[in-house]
């Protein structure tokens, strides 16, 4: 059983009539971490959205964790996908701890797991601080804490290194290490080529909506 975690064939995405992705091929094997590089507007974030099953491709075929993209099948695998976009998914009015606990309860994970993840990313002392009054880097750490807590089989990091200090780098290292060990897959977008090449198994280049 070595079905790929992600397999995209000739994927195209249009927003209205504007093509954003035109021909993307991508395979992520179990245990593999792939980096994505490319200039602004090349479609990296859209690609991440497609792999996350959140953006329906307009053409081409793809499977993510065994579910065919563009079908209702994706609903049953979504819970196994972890996404951290360039804008952190936090509620500014809730505290950092409350943010994670809310996610834990919706996902059916224990509150203890949420608190443990918060401590693991070094935010235990800031637990009661409202997310809206925390720095961008702290909010990014909440995104990463969620991945530690939910242990997704497919990890997707957009602008993986933006707003994170060297200390926080180790969180990403651990997430990737655990994902590899679980035979899951990961896709990282980053502008920091140096950090990226250190963390991924190979880099996929994308230009003007196509893999090159």
């Amino acid at each position: 059983m070595t079905d790929p975690i992600v397999q995209l064939r000739d994927i195209g995405v249009r927003f209205g009539t504007v093509p954003v992705l035109v021909a993307v091929d991508l395979t992520i094997a179990p245990g593999e971490v792939v980096g994505v590089a490319g200039p602004n507007g090349s479609g990296k974030t859209t690609l991440l959205g497609v792999v996350a099953t959140l953006i329906r491709p307009s053409s081409g075929t793809g499977r993510v964790l065994g579910a065919a993209l563009g079908t209702d099948d994706v609903r049953r695998v979504r819970r196994r996908i972890g996404l951290s976009g360039h804008e952190p998914a936090v509620y500014p009015d809730l505290t950092l701890a409350e943010n994670l606990r809310f996610v834990a309860r919706v996902a059916g994970v224990t509150v203890e797991a949420a608190d443990r993840a918060l401590a693991d990313v070094g935010l235990a002392a800031a637990a009661d601080r409202p997310a809206g009054r925390s720095s961008h880097g702290m909010q990014r750490r909440i995104d990463l804490a969620r991945m530690l807590m939910l242990e997704p089989d497919l990890v997707l990091l957009d602008e993986a290194h933006a707003g994170l200090d060297q200390d926080a780098e180790v969180i990403i290292d651990v997430i990737l290490e655990r994902t590899r060990r679980r035979r899951g897959g990961a896709l990282l977008v980053s502008h920091d080529a140096e950090r990226l090449t250190r963390q991924v198994d190979r880099v996929l280049r994308i230009e003007a909506g196509a893999t090159v």
């Binding site: 954003v20 200039p39 909506g209």
Partner: peptide, 16 residues
């Protein structure tokens, strides 16, 4: 209208 909109639209990335 849609055809006009779609006419000669290059991928977004090519505009950068």
């Amino acid at each position: 209208e849609e055809a006009v909109e779609a006419h000669e639209r290059a991928p977004a990335g090519r505009a950068v």
